[in-house]
Simulated assay, not measured.
Amino acid sequence: MPAASPATPAPPASMPSRAPRTPTLRRRLTCMLYEGVLLFGVLMAASAVYLLARPVLQRLGLDQPYVDQAWMFVVLACYFTWFWQRNGQTLAMQTWRIRLETAAGEPPHWTRALLRYVLAWLWLPPAAAVGHALGLTRGPFVGVLVAGLLVWIALAWLDPRRQFLHDRLAGTRLIDLRDPRDPRPASKS
């Protein structure tokens, strides 16, 4: 009769998965700056389209500053929503290895991506209202807008997972795609 071999415990059927890591605030802000550089080209192309359509808009009485601003808002919405619903990453997010996903770990559906885009602008109306209420113009008004944006970004420190408020409200999260075992030092938040 063959000798019995010592029993080895079978590995658990499902290993507990580690919660996804949130990118540091510093990496997210750097990614946002890089996104701004890329969006310069997108907005230049959108401006060219608007200028080509301007004669038609003038005949229709629609050549107003707010129409131009609304056009740029829609162009940016299309850019972000398309990339986020496609694979959860814009071009800058691919470079910085950051992805947007739902709680299920999937890229957001286009409606959730659009909701996130709109919610990401919630800092602007209160900041603009304060600037107008104080009667500020030009530089000081821009300063109030920057302060409003910084307060919005700083709210991420109040979230237990360091997510932005618009991510919390939209049911999305940003995750760090870098290998946690990467020997390169991680940046500090």
Rank of each mutant, 00 (worst) to 15 (best):
Y79V: 06
R18N: 09
C78P: 04
R99T: 04
Y66P: 00
S5E: 15
S5D: 15
A128Y: 10
A7H: 03
V67K: 02
A13E: 08
P65N: 11
L134E: 12
T81K: 02
Q64N: 13
G61N: 02
Y50W: 13
A104K: 02
T137P: 07
A4Q: 08
L38E: 02
L43V: 11
T22E: 05
T111S: 15
Q94Y: 09
W152L: 01
W82G: 11
A19R: 14
L76C: 11
W71R: 04
P11M: 11
G41W: 14
L91H: 04
D159M: 05
H109F: 08
P180F: 00
P125L: 09
H132V: 14
R138K: 09
R99L: 02
F40H: 04
P11Y: 10
P125S: 14
A104N: 01
V130C: 06
A113S: 11
A129Y: 14
S17V: 06
T22G: 06
L122G: 01
G171A: 12
L52S: 09
R112K: 13
E106Y: 00
Y34A: 03
H109M: 07
Q69Y: 09
Q89N: 06
Q163R: 15
A13T: 09
L124M: 10
A92W: 01
R173C: 03
P11K: 03
A92M: 03
L38C: 06
R181A: 13
C78M: 13
L174Q: 10
A186E: 05
A154E: 07
P55N: 12
L115K: 11
S17A: 10
F40T: 10
P140A: 11
A129R: 14
L115H: 10
R86G: 06
L51K: 12
I175G: 01
W152K: 00
Q89H: 05
L122V: 07
V37C: 09
R162E: 10
C31N: 03
L150D: 01
Y50N: 05
F80I: 05
L76Q: 12
P183C: 00
F83M: 12
R112W: 08
M44P: 07
Y34K: 01
A3H: 07
Q89E: 06
L174M: 15
R59P: 00
L29E: 08
L62E: 10
Q89V: 07
A154D: 10
A4V: 13
F80D: 07
P16M: 04
A133D: 15
F40M: 05
R54H: 09
G171H: 14
A154L: 13
W152V: 02
L39E: 11
Q94G: 08
V144G: 01
R99H: 02
P6I: 00
D179Q: 05
W121R: 07
W121H: 08
G143M: 09
A10Y: 01
D159A: 08
D167S: 09
P107Y: 01
T111W: 14
P65E: 12
W84F: 09
T22A: 12
L100V: 13
A92I: 02
L136K: 15
L114H: 03
A113Y: 03
W84E: 07
P6H: 00
A170H: 05
W110F: 15
